[in-house]
């Protein structure tokens, strides 16, 4: 029997599946799951195990001696920012239909996102705790 005809040829070359909308949806699913665990962990440590009364500069300095908590906070920060801003982009996409409005919104979102992420990353990465962290051994 002859090979079955490729039906899609009648409609032009089929486009490969992928693209911004697909990967943005996938990112939202994966980052949403990661954020749920990261944010719950953050909540439990900062508000249940420790009281907000004891969280001060010393507390943060002690945590930031190593890279584990910096990595944790960086991941939480970057994922939350991109997840939130992508959500905003989706809302803009749904409700703003004028090209000019969409351009302004896109610039605002990208600008705001870049500034906030850079500020946060700089704060986490460049923080230098005192050589002997204050409060250790107290």
């Amino acid at each position: 029997m002859a090979a079955p005809p490729a039906l899609s040829s009648a409609y032009g070359r089929p486009k490969p599946i992928g693209g911004m909308d697909l990967w943005s949806w996938y990112f939202m699913r994966v980052s949403g799951l990661a954020l749920l665990l990261l944010a719950l962990g953050h909540l439990v440590i900062m508000h249940l195990i420790n009281s907000v009364d004891v969280i001060d500069y010393d507390f943060v300095a002690r945590r930031y001696v190593g890279w584990f908590w910096r990595g944790y906070d960086l991941l939480l920060l970057v994922l939350a920012m991109i997840h939130g801003l992508n959500g905003m982009r989706v809302i803009v996409d749904d409700y703003l239909h004028q090209p000019a409005q969409r351009r302004v919104a896109a610039w605002l979102l990208h600008g705001l996102g870049t500034i906030l992420i850079v500020l946060g990353v700089v704060a986490v990465v460049t923080f230098r705790p005192p050589v002997t962290p204050v409060g250790v051994g107290q």
Binding site: L7, S8, Y11, P14, K15, I17, G18, G19, D21, L22, S24, W25, D93
Partner: peptide, 16 residues
């Protein structure tokens, strides 16, 4: 017919 249907559904106004 997936190859013919999926591109329509993958557009910005598709399932996303």
């Amino acid at each position: 017919g997936a190859a013919e249907r999926l591109p329509v559904l993958n557009e910005a106004n598709g399932v996303w």
